[in-house]
């Protein structure tokens, strides 16, 4: 791909490139915790989150990062989680959030 288009560098483009293949690490997480596929991003998990009032941990966003292939964004946010499970006990779609976070915070970019 050409590095420049109309004078802009690709590196400056904010758009998520959905044309690239999903990295294996992400496939791995989805494989080990398939309930992630059920998430509708309702935000209940973040509303409930014990860490959410102090940090930028937003589980629904982590899941979006994961699905969009944005590996680098995940760990920084995920590491705030205390695994308390309050989100999971009330998630309307039955996502195994604690397990997912353990897997996500294991991802090495």
């Amino acid at each position: 791909m050409a590095g420049t288009k109309f004078g802009f560098f690709d590196a400056n483009v904010r758009s998520i490139n959905l044309d690239v293949e999903t990295p294996e690490t992400i496939e791995g997480v989805l494989h080990r915790e398939p309930s992630l596929l059920k998430c509708i991003g309702c935000g209940n998990c973040a509303a409930m989150c014990t860490a959410g009032h102090f940090t930028d941990l937003r589980f629904y966003r982590l899941n979006l990062y994961l699905k969009r292939g944005l590996v680098n964004e995940i760990r920084k946010e995920a590491q705030n989680c205390m695994l308390c499970g309050k989100c999971q006990l009330t998630c309307p779609r039955g996502v195994n959030i604690r397990h997912a976070i353990l897997l996500m915070s294991s991802i090495r970019p």
Partner: peptide
């Protein structure tokens, strides 16, 4: 199994 998982709770009040 989760030895790669790392947490950081330095924000704790």
């Amino acid at each position: 199994i989760f030895n790669q998982a790392s947490f950081n709770h330095s924000w704790m009040p």
